[in-house]
Write a protein that binds this DNA or RNA. Structure first.
Lengths: 226, 226
DNA sequence: GAGGGGTATTTGTTCCAACTAATTTGTGAT
DNA sequence: ATCACAAATTAGTTGGAACAAATACCCCTC
């Protein structure tokens, strides 16, 4: 097991998350710098280091992508993160927005041994409290819902169930909590106003409006109309 | 809340533990260097840093002692450590020797907010799985058993109950587990051979011998003979 | 009171991961 | 085809925490 400092782990995880989000394997220095909140030059030198250690492929001025081994490391970090979140969520009954920051710190401080015990304790769950899939012990990214779409992309009149939220910002999560929305909530898209950039939907009889770009972070599966 | 890096926290905790163990407030550079497994020069420069930040008093060639603020920080770290140990012990049913190392890493990665929730979840416990007292939320060191002695110091024929073990070495804890000894075990001192450096005691009908210096790490309270 | 032995401190490096500022490269518009 | 701009890379510094080796200090013994 190669030694990967906390910093290296964070970079690898960031690269994985950016590429999962953007859908492309290759990411740019700039994207990574912004995500890590670090100067571009810092990223360049880190990418060289990661290339040395075979964690990424890197071509100057073009960008970088994870190698198989880099991806495995990143996935292990993600697995730790998500299992810890769920663990805290289940045992301590903390809220959505509270656990993310804690898990961010803890993910580098727990051994694989402990994580596997947490996994067992939780009954080998498939998703974390945000609905994000938990990578399996052998490093596979699981995908719980193949027919996933977003609230923003759903048609008016569509009956949907929230299965995942893909933004961990405290304020966003608080907004959802306040609105009574959580994983498993079912609702109907009532109105989409592309000009105003607004989506209105109904949940348990209550109407909720949110910006289109916000609704893109709410992943749903279609339900058959009742 | 002053910013204390993980390294600073570890030094402060070490100073506290050394002085608790030795019974004297002032500790030497050498003791600390050995405890931290670090070169003496490193300790000297760290002590200067800690003096700067008002965490310790330090006099060259004489040693250092915690200031009130340094002590508070150290106690908070100790509290985190012990609550985490108990948390893992209770929820994941890990063994004595497994949790210590995990908690060592995790203690710097969890917020006071989380620790207080763990405390509540556990029902505000007084001692951790090793019987060590858990400092209270307001930074008091609790002392559960005032009439504490060690197995090594108990008279032949004494009826005792184990309430604490003061060595966290994996091998020592494994030895205790294998011997069936744990917090709460009750036994009788059968034989003490100071020349051979051996203490023999009986637990549930089983005789167990251990070295005197080992038995010093087993803290007991006397029981009335049955 | 002069040495000597054991601790401590100082000094000078090293590595990591960040920064700023200067330079280079790639690309889209004219 | 060139220019200008945005993005990336290089170069040079910084701070933290470690090390080894040289030096300084304390105290005990003769």
């Amino acid at each position: 097991m190669s030694v990967t400092s906390l910093t290296v782990e964070n970079y690898l995880k960031a690269i994985l998350q950016i590429s999962l989000q953007s859908g492309s394997e290759w990411i740019s220095t700039g994207e990574l710098a912004k995500y890590m909140d670090v100067a571009p030059g810092t990223v360049t030198s880190m990418l060289k280091t990661l290339k040395q250690s075979q964690h990424v492929e890197y071509r100057p001025y073009e960008g970088a992508s994870l190698t198989e081994s880099g991806k495995q490391t990143a996935i292990r970090v993600l697995r730790r993160h998500r299992l810890i979140e769920l663990f805290l969520f289940q045992t301590l009954k903390l809220s959505w927005d509270q656990i993310h920051a804690e898990a961010e710190n803890m993910e580098h401080a727990v051994s694989d041994f402990l994580v596997d015990h947490i996994d067992e304790f939780l009954g080998f769950p498939e998703t974390d409290p945000h609905g994000d899939p938990i990578p399996s012990i052998d490093g596979q990214m699981r995908r719980a819902y193949p027919n996933l779409t977003t609230l923003a992309a759903s048609q008016i009149g569509a009956n949907v169930k929230i299965v995942q939220v893909t933004d961990q910002e405290t304020e966003f999560l608080r907004f959802l909590s306040r609105s009574g929305l959580k994983i498993g909530s079912e609702g109907i898209v009532k109105e989409k106003n592309r000009e105003a950039g607004i989506v209105v939907s109904e949940w348990n009889g209550q109407l909720i409006s949110m910006g289109i770009h916000v609704a893109e972070n709410v992943k749903v599966v279609p339900l058959l109309a009742r």
